[in-house]
């Protein structure tokens, strides 16, 4: 396994028991991702995109094969080790944002830093920087219920980026957004990718998202159907 890759998957398979049999969600997945890649898993619903993201994000483990993230074998990590990996190295962006409803925008973004025991001053600076990246400093005191869909997703991006992770996993980030907002948040992520060299991995079947990707991996029935390098424009039209 090449340690130059931030993510390395070898013969990864994922099976779920169904009755007496089993359902195979992923099969023979062999992929490597380098630092700073802006890639996407593309495919129809049920093709295994989210399952693969969950394995890479150490929320799940493969039934077969090896998933290595930043040199760590996901299957052998303890609960505490995988929590630390998620806390320090991996940022998640979800389809429905998953913002904590009782927290303000500031507190939502601050959360990961609290887990890292950073000082208050350090947290404040990092949160305001992150909100500035996504253009939401003026909404810092608002609760998620007061935000529009685009604003909510921007907060989710700020929350994922505030700790400056090595990897950001975005699961259908545009599913609840209109075209204008989709382009807005993708452009933000692209800028962050360039500025911070963060590896972004999307799961999507949205054409608008695909326009931004530099590498597209097509999944079909849990297998890699195609792995293509594309050269996305910095500002697709």
């Amino acid at each position: 396994m090449n340690s130059d890759y931030v993510i390395s998957l070898r013969n990864v398979a994922k099976h779920y028991p169904i009755g007496d049999g089993r359902f195979t969600a992923l099969q023979d997945i062999n992929l490597d991702f380098s630092q700073g890649e802006f890639s996407g898993l593309v495919g129809p619903s049920g093709s295994g995109k989210t399952t693969l993201l969950n394995i890479i994000g150490s929320l799940d483990s493969p039934s077969e094969g090896t998933a290595s993230v930043l040199g760590k074998n996901i299957a052998t990590l303890s609960h505490k080790e995988s929590a630390q990996l998620r806390n320090r190295e991996i940022g998640f962006i979800f389809q429905v944002y998953n913002l904590l409803p009782v927290y303000t925008v500031f507190e939502n973004v601050e959360f990961a830093l609290l887990l890292q025991n950073r000082s208050e001053a350090e947290r404040k600076k990092a949160v305001m920087d992150a909100l500035e990246w996504v253009g939401l400093t003026h909404l810092a005191d608002k609760k998620p219920s007061k935000l529009s869909g685009g604003e909510g997703q921007r907060v989710a991006i700020a929350r994922a980026m505030v700790k400056r992770p090595s990897i950001v996993l975005a699961d259908e980030p545009s599913a609840n957004l209109d075209a204008r907002n989709t382009h807005g948040i993708l452009q933000t992520m692209k800028d962050l990718n360039r500025e911070l060299k963060t590896t972004f991995l999307f799961s999507t079947h949205d054409e608008k998202v695909m326009q931004y990707l530099e590498r597209i991996i097509h999944l079909d029935d849990g297998r890699i159907a195609q792995d293509e390098i594309v050269h996305a424009q910095s500002t697709p039209t």
Partner: peptide
């Protein structure tokens, strides 16, 4: 969903 979010953000289940 909130519990899942806590875990995805880096909390252990025990936390």
């Amino acid at each position: 969903k909130e519990i899942g979010t806590y875990i995805s953000l880096g909390m252990t289940r025990q936390q």
